[in-house]
C-alpha cells in the first residue's frame, strides 16, 4: 500500500458500530440518572400514597396529554427524517428535522405555561405556600419539579443538538451514506421521549 492510499483510507475511516455503541453507553448512564429519581419517587409514593394522589389531582392532565401527543409525534418525525436522509431525500429530511425541533419547542412552551401557573399559585420548590403543606405533598412537588425539570432540560439539549444536525445536513457533512450523527441524535431524542412515557402516568394519572 502506498503512502497516498494509506492516507486516503485514514480519511474515510468511519466506525459506524463504534459510534452507535458510544451513544448507547451514554444512554445507559442517562437511564440510571433518571432511574435514581424513579427509585426516590417509588419509595416516597409508597410511603405517602394519599398525598401523592391528592397532589396529582392538581396537575393539568390535558396539558400533560397534549405534551404526550407532541413528543410521540416528534419521535415519528425524528425517525422519518433519518429514513428520508437514508433514501437520499435531503429536503424532506430537513423538513422532518425542523418539525421535530418545532414540536420540542412546543413541548417546552406548554411546560412553561404549566410551571408558570404553578408559580403563580405560589407553588415552587421551597416556597412559603408549599412548605405549609403535608410532607407527602412537598415530596410530590419536589419530585415533580426536579424530574420534569431535568426532562425539560433534556428536551432543550435535544433541540440544540438537532439545530446542529440541520446545519450539518444543509452543509452536506451528513448525507445518505454518512448519517450516524443524525441517527445518534435520534437515539437521544427517542430516549427523552421514553422518559416522558413514564413521567406522564406517574405524575398526572395517579388514581
Amino acid at each position: 500500500m502506498t503512502e497516498e492510499t494509506l492516507h486516503k483510507t485514514a480519511e474515510v475511516h468511519r466506525d459506524y458500530t463504534g459510534s452507535k455503541m458510544g451513544m448507547w453507553l451514554f444512554l445507559f448512564t442517562e437511564m440510571l440518572l433518571f432511574g435514581g429519581m424513579f427509585i426516590l419517587y417509588a419509595v416516597y409514593r409508597f410511603k405517602h400514597p394519599e398525598e401523592f394522589h391528592t397532589s396529582a389531582q392538581d396537575l393539568d392532565t390535558t396539558i400533560g396529554a397534549i405534551n404526550t401527543l407532541i413528543l410521540l409525534t416528534s419521535s415519528l418525525t425524528m425517525a422519518l427524517s433519518i429514513l428520508a436522509l437514508q433514501k437520499g431525500k435531503k429536503r424532506l429530511s430537513l423538513v422532518f428535522q425542523v418539525l421535530t425541533i418545532l414540536m420540542g419547542a412546543a413541548f417546552l412552551g406548554n411546560k412553561s405555561l404549566e410551571w408558570g401557573a404553578k408559580f403563580h399559585h405560589g407553588m415552587y420548590p421551597n416556597s412559603a405556600y408549599l412548605l405549609t403543606k403535608s410532607s407527602g405533598e412537598i415530596l410530590f412537588y419536589g419530585l415533580y419539579f426536579v424530574m420534569t425539570g431535568i426532562h425539560g432540560l433534556h428536551v432543550l439539549i435535544g433541540i440544540g443538538v438537532l439545530l446542529f444536525m440541520v446545519l450539518f445536513t444543509m452543509r452536506g457533512s451528513i448525507d445518505s451514506t454518512n448519517f450516524v450523527k443524525l441517527e445518534n441524535s435520534g437515539l437521544y431524542w427517542h430516549f427523552v421521549d421514553i422518559v416522558w412515557v413514564y413521567l406522564f402516568p406517574l405524575f398526572y394519572l395517579i388514581t
Binding site: 435520534g186 421521549d193 421514553i194
Partner: peptide, 22 residues
C-alpha cells in the same frame, strides 16, 4: 392502576426502542 400504567408505559417504551431506535 399503577401496575397497568407501568405495563402500558413499558409497552410504549418497547415500541420506541424496537422501531424508532432501530
Amino acid at each position: 392502576s399503577i401496575v397497568v400504567a407501568l405495563l402500558i408505559a413499558s409497552l410504549k417504551a418497547a415500541l420506541i426502542l424496537y422501531f424508532f431506535m432501530h
